[in-house]
């Protein structure tokens, strides 16, 4: 049963009190749906193209996979397939699904459909940014930073690892230990890995 916000508020507090409550609780009254974020159903924009063929371009499973690449615009952060199969209170993902179905039935392949959605909504309709232009910075920066970090560590290790020259004034003291004892000490040092 769907109850409008106005109706809900009138029932809850009645008369003038409802107005005050609206103001007080305004931030939490939005239609939030399963994803707990305000849903803006006006965000749906039709994506339609004239049919290219009478044969559907893909199977239902392939269509579902394609819908995983398209971002539902209701504000939920989910893809179209997941949103529409999770929450029927969202009106945006079923509408977008209908557009996908129509394009599939019209013979458009996955890339055509992605392009058509991108043309209407812009790149925000894709679950990941297209790999071109400024977006490449998004993809490569973490790896560049990591490589720079590795290079820095290697340089630091090399700098730290300079052979230490013994001071000319310092004479090496004779060690009062047998080779076996020395070996055992070295073993202990190596195994000291707590």
């Amino acid at each position: 049963m769907h109850v409008t916000r106005r109706g809900f508020l009138q029932l809850v507090s009645g008369g003038s009190a409802s107005l005050a409550l609206t103001a007080a609780l305004g931030a939490q009254q939005a239609n939030t749906g399963a994803a707990n974020v305000p849903m803006d159903e006006a965000r749906y924009l039709p994506v339609r193209l004239p049919p290219r063929s009478s044969q559907p371009s893909m199977t239902n499973l392939q269509r579902d996979a394609l819908e995983h690449r398209i971002h539902c615009q209701c504000g939920c952060n989910l893809d179209v397939f997941t949103c529409r199969t999770t929450d029927f209170s969202c009106q945006v993902s079923p509408a977008m699904h209908k557009d996908v179905m129509a394009l599939v039935a019209g013979g458009y392949d996955a890339q055509d459909i992605i392009n058509a959605f991108t043309k209407v909504y812009g790149p925000r309709v894709l679950m990941e940014p297209p790999r071109r232009g400024f977006n490449l910075a998004g993809y490569f920066t973490p790896f560049v930073v990591l490589l720079a970090g590795i290079a820095l560590v290697v340089v630091l290790i090399r700098r730290w690892h300079r052979p230490v020259e013994m001071d000319a004034g310092v004479r090496q003291l004779p060690v009062d230990a047998s080779p076996d004892e020395l070996e055992r000490l070295q073993r202990l040092v190596r195994h000291d890995d707590s």
Binding site: P123, R124, G138
Partner: peptide, 28 residues
């Protein structure tokens, strides 16, 4: 940690630099 932060903030950066809204979802 950097890549997670970068991906989280990249949509804001993209909008600020290019004026284009993008989505950075799980595939990224």
């Amino acid at each position: 940690a950097f890549s997670v932060l970068w991906g989280t903030l990249f949509p804001i950066l993209s909008e600020a630099v290019r004026g284009t809204k993008i989505t950075v979802g799980p595939p990224f």
